[in-house]
């Protein structure tokens, strides 16, 4: 199973626990280090969208920038951004000298993003190829189907006790009685479609509901399940 449930065996309650998690953060791409220029542009931006700048965590991206001969004042930059309602959580990219200066100013250096520069632009217009899998038989109790990097399409029922997992969307042209977990690598845009919802568990990008939490009104109908503002939404396809 891909979902974890809290352990209950510890005799003493732990003061904390460390866990990895994914966040969507605003990235501030810096093109020059002149504080007055930055402040001018910031004031303009705040006028356009004042509510956005309310303690918003940002990552400062220094891609393509070299260490300037006059030096960098990261502390000053930090204060400037704080003053305007942004909370810098770290930097990424930039020359090794810049990164060293950021560390000295207590700003963590985040790992480089994998898609950079020109490659990023071309990928936006041309999404990565996905590898869909078509299963032309029913998925029986005890069977598990996993489709990495794509959608899974099932021509038949998914029985109670069966599990269908995909990095992409899940389509079931039959009754969904087992478990369906879409977007298991964290893609919140993925959805689950089925001809009749009688599932034991549905999950998108880690948000899940068990059978008990699916209302009777939502059951037994052609359905799509998606995430809206981080909540699972069950919608009938017969409108």
């Amino acid at each position: 199973m891909l979902l974890r449930f809290p352990h209950q065996t510890d005799p003493e309650p732990l003061p904390f626990e460390l866990k990895g998690s994914l966040f969507t953060l605003t990235v501030l791409h810096l093109f020059q280090l002149d504080p007055s220029a930055i402040e001018r542009h910031l004031t303009e931006k705040i006028k356009q969208a004042p509510s956005f700048f309310n303690n918003t965590p940002v990552v400062i991206d220094l891609e393509g920038m070299a260490y300037p001969p006059e030096g960098v004042d990261f502390n000053g930059l930090y204060e400037l951004l704080r003053k305007h309602g942004m909370a810098p959580v770290g930097i990424r990219n930039g020359s090794p000298e810049l990164q060293a200066a950021a560390r000295l100013a207590q700003l963590p250096v985040l790992p480089e993003s994998r898609v950079t520069g020109v490659a990023r632009k071309s990928e936006r217009t041309d999404p990565a190829p996905t590898h869909s899998q078509i299963i032309s038989h029913p998925v029986r109790s005890g069977q598990q189907i996993y489709t990495p990097d794509g959608d899974v399409i099932i021509l038949g029922a998914v029985s109670a006790g069966a599990e269908v997992i995909a990095d992409g969307n899940i389509h079931v042209y039959g009754v969904l009685r087992g478990r369906a977990l879409a977007g298991v690598k964290g893609d919140a845009e993925t959805r689950i479609f089925c001809q009749s919802l009688e599932a034991e568990l549905i999950s998108i990008a880690g948000r899940y509901r068990v059978s008990e939490q699916i209302s009777a009104a939502d059951r037994g109908k052609p359905t799509q399940i998606r995430l809206v503002e981080d909540r699972l939404v069950i919608e009938s396809l017969n409108r």
Binding site: R140, Q143, G161
Partner: peptide, 11 residues
């Protein structure tokens, strides 16, 4: 359900 499981194994 157990029969369903066996059908899966047969397949």
């Amino acid at each position: 359900r157990d029969s369903d499981r066996i059908l899966g194994i047969l397949a």
